[in-house]
């Protein structure tokens, strides 16, 4: 059997990426995502429609309650709501679905030498597909019905990349913590419920009294959602780029921290799962 000299792999305590091959990684993520999707919609009548229905119905109900009943004083309220609510649903669902990934993939992680990040990335990708479908559907419907008044729509790709990167980092951290603290999953459910009211998703940040603004300043999720709100509802070039920069910076910090925790705990994750 021919051995290729370049295939020499060295493993020392510090290295995290020895033997990593991006093409193989992507192939595995793609395969697991397809299998997840197939598995979830098997024996369902509406199939993929369920995924889109959840954010669409949430959006419809909240639009009715906050826009018509409570009459929140924001112009083009539905556009404002879609720019905050759909990214929020993406973040919250990703956190809830990804937190148990390492803990439940234990037998697989121990059986086959596949990076655990494959299973995590597949779950995040699954949610990204749902996010794109729901966001595109609701935004298109609103644009047709009310007319689109936001910034250049192609720019939405940028906050989308930032939020996906951030969501991956948060999920990575939570999935690692869940292996050691099984209450992480319950805590996240609780935090998501509270976070929905404390994050300016269905109301603008200006509604928050000055004394409580720090809630927003320390909320990383808001930094990931804010560029969507500025782009779609209240477009201002300078503000958008500033918010986008902050979103990427927050995502970077989250991923650096998640990666640091992972490197420290990797062996124990394998030990405990």
């Amino acid at each position: 059997m021919a051995l290729v000299a370049s295939s020499l792999v060295r493993r020392t305590p510090g290295d995290a990426l020895s033997g990593f091959n991006a093409t193989y990684f992507w192939r595995q993520v793609h395969a697991v995502t397809v299998a997840n999707l197939k598995s979830r919609y098997r024996k369902t009548v509406a199939g993929f429609l369920w995924v889109v229905l959840n954010p669409v119905i949430s959006f419809g109900v909240q639009g009715l309650v906050f826009g018509r009943f409570l009459k929140i004083g924001v112009d083009d309220y539905l556009l404002f709501l879609v720019s905050g609510l759909i990214p929020w649903i993406f973040l919250s669902q990703t956190m809830e679905m990804c937190t148990p990934v390492f803990a439940v993939s234990g037998p697989l992680m121990k059986s086959f030498s596949v990076s655990p990040l494959v299973y995590l990335s597949a779950q995040v990708l699954d949610n990204i597909i749902n996010f794109i479908a729901a966001f595109a559907l609701v935004l298109t419907a609103l644009a047709i019905y009310y007319g689109y008044t936001g910034g250049p729509v192609f720019l939405v790709v940028l906050p989308f990349l930032a939020i996906c990167w951030g969501a991956f980092g948060i999920s990575w951290l939570l999935a690692t913590l869940q292996v050691f603290f099984r209450d992480t999953r319950f805590l996240i459910r609780f935090v998501v419920q509270i976070g929905f009211f404390l994050t300016p998703v269905f109301y603008p940040p200006e509604f928050i009294p000055e004394a409580f603004r720090w809630f927003v300043d320390v909320n990383p999720l808001f930094y990931l959602i804010s560029p969507f709100q500025i782009l779609i509802h209240d477009y201002h070039g300078g503000l958008f780029w500033q918010a986008l920069l902050k979103a990427f910076f927050v995502s970077f910090l989250i991923n650096v921290f998640a990666s640091w925790v992972w490197r420290r705990c990797r062996n124990l994750v394998y030990f405990y799962v």
Partner: peptide, 16 residues
């Protein structure tokens, strides 16, 4: 490649 060693080195030539 599942566990990273606490210290020492592992050299592998080829695919495991």
């Amino acid at each position: 490649g599942y566990y990273r060693p606490t210290s020492g080195k592992i050299r592998i030539k080829g695919r495991v």
